[in-house]
Write a protein that binds this DNA or RNA. Structure first.
Length: 375
DNA sequence: CCTGCCAAAGGGATTACGTCA
DNA sequence: TTTGACGTAATCCCTTTGGCA
């Protein structure tokens, strides 16, 4: 994603927007507010736009994994890459990092292979690329299936997730549960709810209908699923079966619950991102306003000084990172073409990482892109 | 009656694997 | 024996549907 700040004429798009494909232009929003032209360009730096959000999501998931694995290394690599090819560039990149880590999708067949985490053989994730992917994507060792099944079958002490499920299950109903007598005493509503669901499901089963059944998971079931989701937001088949068995749900129900839960997480993250971009927009608007004012002052100074144009042209440039203004004297006033040529190729990333903790666009601890990174 | 939440279903896409020519 | 095409199964995400508080 790229953010471009245009001062003055918003009708003239950024250079990198003109040069790039139309999809970037489609993602460009020009905001005119109170007489000031403010242009913010939101575009994907990689070719992930074509397939809607899907490919982008997968890419971001991979990036999230990297972040999870080694934040420091990732930051350094980003810094290094950026400074290599974007020195002196003025484009800014926002790295939107979702809050919840999303693991790489793993084929169920891979998960069932000997090096998959279910067999406890990938504790260090050193079983090659595929093994690493499986180990990184799903930390299923947190809830060993064998242990889960043991807890489920024995229904004994030991597991923090253990619940007294199915004690009042209706005969013949394999899907729903009614909760325990203790649950009924504590939270009668839940039991009533479960009973209703149980009753509905039971009726449907008795009628032999395979129609959609609307059920509300009990608080216990939801809490259990939530705990599971916290540990791993995707399931492999064994985990799914274990969960379903433990909660007295169909595996399909567990699967659907996880899908919907992921969707809710993503929705929340989108809202957070939206709010974040809004703040960025406000900050950039304010900065644009400030620069406009500065420009007017310089123009006023120029008109008030009749000898101004006789002196060699002076260009004021401000480092986007440290906000220091540098003056360079040239023989002739710079042209747009000359400035464009001086800028070099369009960058794809910032010379320094801008992640959420460091509020865009003005880092609290600015690092000059031309300076070597502090060791 | 309206609305929001949420479980569930449907559909397209992706991936891994097996089969076969 | 290797290879590419094809089918299948499983899962994903996205969107929509429908029940319920």
């Amino acid at each position: 994603m790229e953010l471009g700040l245009s001062l003055g004429d918003a009708t003239k798009p950024f250079g990198f927007l003109k040069e790039n494909n139309t999809q970037k232009q489609q993602n460009t929003a020009i905001i005119k507010k109170s007489g000031l032209d403010f242009c913010i360009a939101l575009g994907l730096t990689s070719s992930t736009v074509a397939d809607g959000g899907r490919e982008k999501t997968q890419k971001s998931q991979e990036e999230e994994e990297d972040d999870d694995d080694d934040d420091d290394d990732d930051d350094q690599s980003s810094e290094g890459d950026g400074s290599d090819d974007t020195q002196g560039e003025t484009h800014l990149q926002l790295n939107l990092l979702p809050l919840a880590p999303a693991p790489r999708r793993i084929s169920p067949r891979l998960q069932s292979l000997p090096w998959s985490s279910d067999n406890g053989s990938s504790e260090n994730g050193s079983s090659g690329n595929m093994g690493r992917a499986a180990a990184k994507g799903l930390d299923v060792n947190r809830l060993p299936v064998a242990a889960a099944e043991e807890v489920s079958s024995a229904n004994s002490v030991g597991s923090p997730f253990q619940m007294d499920l199915g004690m009042y299950r209706r005969p013949g109903n394999g899907n729903q549960m009614g909760g325990s007598k203790r649950d009924f005493e504590a939270t009668g509503n839940d039991v009533v709810e479960a009973e209703r669901a149980s009753s509905r499901a039971s009726d449907d089963d008795e009628n032999g209908l395979n129609t959609r059944k609307k059920l509300r998971l009990t608080k216990e079931q939801s809490a259990f699923l939530e705990e599971s989701f916290k540990e791993h937001n995707t399931l492999n088949p064994k985990q799914k079966l274990a969960l379903a068995k433990q909660l007295n749900l169909r595996p399909r129900q567990v699967e659907v619950w996880f899908q919907n839960r992921r969707a809710r997480t993503k929705l929340k993250q989108t809202e957070v991102d939206c709010e974040y971009l809004k703040r960025c927009c406000e900050t950039l608007t304010e900065e644009n306003r400030r620069l406009h004012k500065e420009l007017q002052e310089l123009r006023a100074l120029k008109t008030s000084n009749p000898f101004y144009m006789q002196s060699p042209a002076t260009t004021l440039t401000m480092c986007p990172s440290c906000e220091r203004v540098a003056t360079t004297t040239t023989a002739a006033p710079p042209t747009v073409a000359a400035a464009s040529a001086k800028m070099g190729p369009i960058p794809k990333a910032l010379p320094f990482p801008l992640t959420r903790p460091r509020f865009f666009p003005f880092p609290q601890t600015p690092t000059h892109p031309n300076q070597p990174a502090a060791s």
